[in-house]
């Protein structure tokens, strides 16, 4: 792909803000895109091409002995299966639900952090603690759910209702809330930091109550970033496999079906089909988040 380019191959050195011309001359400078070539080759071979192969496999265009030619049969079978439809719906409920809950928690937290940052108050411990889940694989978060609300979980001692909650829909929702928390807090914090504090302050001095300032000034300003972040977080939560893999005896989510098709008998075409459906759903969430955020940003600006 990069070989077809000439646009990046200008030979003059990069000139930053009025830099003096280069004095030395040591033969022709290699074209700039050459620096990007190794990375582009790796990405092409091990990211873009496999995804294309996966889509081909799902359409019956894989290796001839296994696949007989172009067909939509795999998709028909996937959408015809009640188990797959349920898993897809559950995945959507869990991903959207957990991110919406996360958002309700994240908005007050980032506003507090922005205020603390401006006041120069510390908060490194809070910061580290709230970032921690991003470095934990999903399986550990699933295991946390077992320790607290599994059949011999710690919280089960306090109240029987907590025993086995990990394997139910609400339990899974809470586990994915833990998973989504740092993924929403991170980007939203950046947006909260750029809010102009003088706007809510002047609204306050003009006599607006705190809830009213929040609803009419702060929230609209934060909304585009919140929507875009939610779209990304929903996409990530949809693909979150580790958490549900640890809690797999409970609610079924689509990533489990993707993996099952390969682990129980190597059905590559069926697995690829479900993987494409999962990926398409995630991309849809991502794009929807971007588009809605742009629409709302324009509406707020006008």
């Amino acid at each position: 792909m990069p070989s077809s380019t000439t646009a990046g191959s200008r030979t003059e050195p990069a000139t930053g803000g009025g830099a003096a011309p280069v004095v030395r001359r040591r033969g022709p400078t290699p074209p700039a895109w050459l620096a990007a070539l190794p990375a582009l080759v790796v990405i092409g071979l091990f990211s873009a091409y496999p995804v294309v192969v996966m889509v081909a496999n799902s359409l019956g265009l894989g290796q001839p002995p296994a696949d007989g030619g172009p067909t939509l049969e795999h998709y028909a079978r996937a959408f015809g299966s009640a188990a797959v439809r349920d898993a897809l719906l559950n995945s959507l409920y869990i991903a959207v639900g957990s991110v919406l809950f996360t958002l309700c928690v994240a908005v007050p937290v980032v506003l507090r952090q922005a205020e603390d940052d401006r006041a120069g108050r510390g908060g490194a411990t809070t910061d580290a603690l709230l970032t921690l889940p991003i470095a934990l694989p999903g399986i550990i978060i699933g295991f946390f759910a077992i320790v607290l609300t599994g059949r011999t979980g710690l919280l089960g001692l306090a109240w029987d209702g907590f025993s086995g909650l990990a394997y139910t829909f609400p339990g899974l929702l809470i586990a994915y809330l833990y998973f989504s928390l740092p993924r929403v807090l991170g980007p939203l914090r950046g947006a909260a930091a750029t809010l102009d504090p003088s706007l809510p302050e002047s609204a306050r001095t003009l006599g607006a109550s705190r809830p009213r300032v929040f609803l009419t000034v702060t929230l609209p300003l934060l909304l585009p970033a919140a929507i875009e972040t939610s779209g990304t977080a929903i996409a990530v939560a949809l693909g979150g496999y580790g958490t549900v893999a640890t809690l797999s005896e409970g609610v079924r989510l689509l990533p489990l079906n993707v993996a099952n098709e390969l682990t129980t008998g190597y059905r590559l075409a069926a697995s690829s089909t479900l993987a494409v459906i999962l990926a398409a759903t995630a991309v849809l969430a991502l794009v929807l988040g971007r588009v809605l955020a742009r629409v709302v940003r324009r509406a707020v600006a006008s």
Partner: peptide, 27 residues
């Protein structure tokens, strides 16, 4: 070209990990 590259690099962010895993082992 760099904008296109940006999209290409971000493919693994949009495609769920387990799907990418299926794609890699299938290829």
């Amino acid at each position: 070209l760099t904008r296109l590259t940006g999209y290409l690099v971000n493919v693994p962010l949009a495609v769920p990990g387990i799907a990418l895993s299926v794609a890699l082992v299938g290829t």
